[in-house]
Design a protein around this nucleic acid. Sequence first.
DNA 1: TATTTTTTTTAGACTAACCTAAAATATCCA
DNA 2: TGGATATTTTAGGTTAGTCTAAAAAAAATA
Lengths: 218, 218
Amino acid sequence: MNSFTEENYLKAIYKLTEQSVGNVTTNAIAEVMNTKAASVTDMVKKLADKKLVNYAKYQGVSLTKKGEDIAIQIIRKHRLWEFFLVNKLNFKWDEVHDIAEELEHINSSALIDRLDEFLGYPKYDPHGDPIPSKNGIFSANNFYKLLKLNEGDSGKVAGVCDHSNTFLQYLEKQKLGLGTSVYLTEKNEYDQSVVITTTDGRVLFLSKEVANNILIAK
Amino acid sequence: MNSFTEENYLKAIYKLTEQSVGNVTTNAIAEVMNTKAASVTDMVKKLADKKLVNYAKYQGVSLTKKGEDIAIQIIRKHRLWEFFLVNKLNFKWDEVHDIAEELEHINSSALIDRLDEFLGYPKYDPHGDPIPSKNGIFSANNFYKLLKLNEGDSGKVAGVCDHSNTFLQYLEKQKLGLGTSVYLTEKNEYDQSVVITTTDGRVLFLSKEVANNILIAK
DNA sequence: TATTTTTTTTAGACTAACCTAAAATATCCA
DNA sequence: TGGATATTTTAGGTTAGTCTAAAAAAAATA
Ligand SMILES: [Mn+2]
Ligand SMILES: [Mn+2]
Ligand SMILES: [Mn+2]
Ligand SMILES: [Mn+2]
């Protein structure tokens, strides 16, 4: 079994791998893990001993198949728990991440399989992120950044790129939760801001920054 | 905040206090915590520094109000999660304890309050143990040991004294789950074994040991 | 009550995960 | 291409929780 700390390192390396080309650097891990480079080196050696990462001095790390499988299972648990918190316990989407950070380390595959069944095998978490299946497969989506849509396009809010509480709460305030139907009324060339209309008739002005962080399913 | 280990010590001390008169001994804690007396002494000093236990060398320990409050909250979480696992995720009563041992350390009072609400504020866990309320109050029960009932008495299985998997699985096999209605047909003076009849007409022969570990609500 | 046995504490050591400071290596750029 | 800068690793130390062995205190018993 792996400790919580080891699991968190694997998850961090997985997420950094998604964002970067080539191996993940020591400093990058240190930053997301909120620790020092020296500590990362120690841990990375330990993970390499356990065959969870590939590591050579000064070369950065990559996950092995085994390490990646573990990382994906943790992400699966995280997102299933987030779905549970929002859809069964009525939490808001900006309230669940920290609790899921703890729940994701509960170690029981029976638990997570039954939770998955109880929730009806959801495909996406409350932020629109795909929930990997039991065997580690992510379902593909065809979501588009609101910023990239054309005037006249319509669709539903399907996810966010920025997961910060401030952004989620901003959308909450604008009543732009997951599933909200929107219609792109106007694109402003000058500052790339957009005007959208919701199906309940509200007209909203969104900046480039906001439009860039909203994903729409057409 | 307290570590998982500290929480487990507090819970162990709480449970030992229920069973014993006077202070809880170092050796007794070592036994239930599956550790050595020397380690217990170290931890007990730390808990005393944090004002969670009263401790004087060679005198054993007792929980302070603060320590007891924490212990009760952990028991609340443990039992609510057990209820969730059995009643929402369809686990058997002999499968939930170990998972609840992990879940009980998830640190969010919002989570546990909402879980409580979601579950309909249950009063007893799947083993008949009372679930303390948010403010730490256990509801009283009037359960009787099956062994102490008289011929002709009837009632429902409301709990168990032995929480071991072997005992729970034995009852499962006999279809004597929580809520089963039973009628005491016969008491055998010689070996204190009993014969009971369930409402669905099954006649069961139970030894003294078994009858002593089943709680009945009349 | 004195001696033996048991319980508890202390002393000293280990591991995991972290730290700081310094050394080693890699990268950048004039 | 060589020196400056940035990154990474090493060396050595800390804390929490554990351990074993030995010392101290309490309890049991003769
Ligand atoms: Mn999250
Ligand atoms: Mn999420
Ligand atoms: Mn339990
Ligand atoms: Mn229970």
